[in-house]
Amino acid sequence: MLKRKEGKMSIREIVNILDADLLCSVENESDVNITMACGADLMSDVLAFIKTNTLLLTGLTTPQVVYTAENSGLNVICFVRGKKPNPDTLALAKEKGIVLLAAKNGMFECCGKLYKKGIIGCFETSKKQTFDQAT
């Protein structure tokens, strides 16, 4: 039996798990911890459901992703499917103090990898966060 525990993850750990590039970081990087993640390409959905201190996985690379992050109080964005943001988005993220990552894998793989390591979804937070899995 393999027990999945609720995980708290640093930026470094996320970078390692997703084999992602760190495009833009913040000064207090070691203080940033993630427990929840949300995968979405629809910013209105993000604005509707996301909690603070959540990692956003998205295939969208416009500056509005950064504004969405700022306004909903999340500080780490990971672009999936090997997408890289344009210089405007990158500059805006630096200005707003938002961490940007870029992963080569698709949305599904990225979400799966993080979920396996204990990161939970925004809808799941009220439940008890352990489940047993037969190995």
Partner: peptide
């Protein structure tokens, strides 16, 4: 394509 316009703005 910009991540908006899915009819969630006003309900949000």
């Amino acid at each position: 394509e910009l991540g908006f316009g899915a009819g969630m703005g006003l309900p949000n």
